Simulated assay, not measured.
Amino acid sequence: MSKLALRAVVGSLLLSAAFGASAAKSAYQDLELSGVMQEIPGVSLRCASKFGGTILGYGSSALLGRVTFLSSDCINQNGTSYTFSDGKFMITTMTGELLFADYNGQFVPTGEGTKYVFTNASFSITGGTGRYFKATGSGAITGGEDMATGQGTIQLKGRILLKK
């Protein structure tokens, strides 16, 4: 085999190994986060309804560690239920890295006073900073809130792909 052909074969093998190694590092991982939250409803000029909510909270995740989060969304009332849309979620890890997601869904009454639960709620990861810069993924949002106090719980469960 000539030196040129040998170099081409070795180069191809090294390139294939490099692509294979980087692909192996970009695997989906389970993402679960549980937390407590406080929603503050009010006027939101970015919303067609001119009404929205700001949510602040904290929680923990096996993948992310301890986190804080901040979000805002638009709220529309549909009888006794509410739809939240155009939601923007920002999760901050203890290392200062950020994870961004869009979200939407509904909250419906439980029949117990002013308690509501999230239903048909989902999130879609749109990126972040640090190791989450090119992250993608999606999942479901569950939990609930007392509409009289704005206090509640939230759980995110889905998958995340960290791209190198």
Rank of each mutant, 00 (worst) to 15 (best):
Q29S: 12
Q29N: 10
D30I: 11
E32W: 00
E32G: 10
G35M: 09
V36L: 14
Q38D: 12
Q38E: 13
E39P: 10
I40R: 06
I40C: 03
P41G: 04
G42Q: 02
V43P: 07
L45S: 15
R46N: 11
C47D: 00
C47Q: 00
A48S: 15
A48H: 10
A48E: 14
F51R: 02
G53Q: 00
G53H: 08
T54E: 12
T54P: 11
I55D: 01
Y58S: 15
Y58A: 15
G59F: 03
G59P: 03
G59M: 02
A62R: 14
L64Q: 09
L64R: 06
G65D: 05
R66I: 14
V67R: 14
T68N: 15
T68R: 15
F69H: 09
F69Y: 14
L70I: 15
L70V: 15
S72H: 04
S72N: 11
C74W: 09
I75R: 08
N76I: 10
N76K: 12
N76Y: 08
Q77K: 10
N78W: 14
T80G: 13
S81Y: 02
Y82H: 10
T83Q: 15
T83K: 14
F84M: 12
G87T: 02
K88D: 09
F89S: 10
I91H: 06
I91P: 08
T92S: 11
L98P: 04
L99T: 00
L99K: 03
L99N: 04
A101P: 02
D102S: 06
Y103P: 05
Y103W: 05
N104S: 07
N104K: 13
G105T: 09
F107D: 08
F107T: 05
V108D: 04
T110V: 08
G113K: 10
T114P: 09
T114K: 06
Y116P: 03
N120T: 09
A121R: 01
A121H: 01
F123W: 06
T126K: 02
G127R: 04
G127S: 04
G128E: 04
T129Q: 01
G130I: 04
G130W: 00
F133H: 07
K134H: 13
A135N: 06
G137R: 11
G137P: 07
G137W: 00
G139Q: 04
I141F: 01
I141E: 03
G143M: 03
E145H: 04
E145Y: 03
E145V: 13
D146P: 08
M147F: 07
M147R: 11
A148G: 05
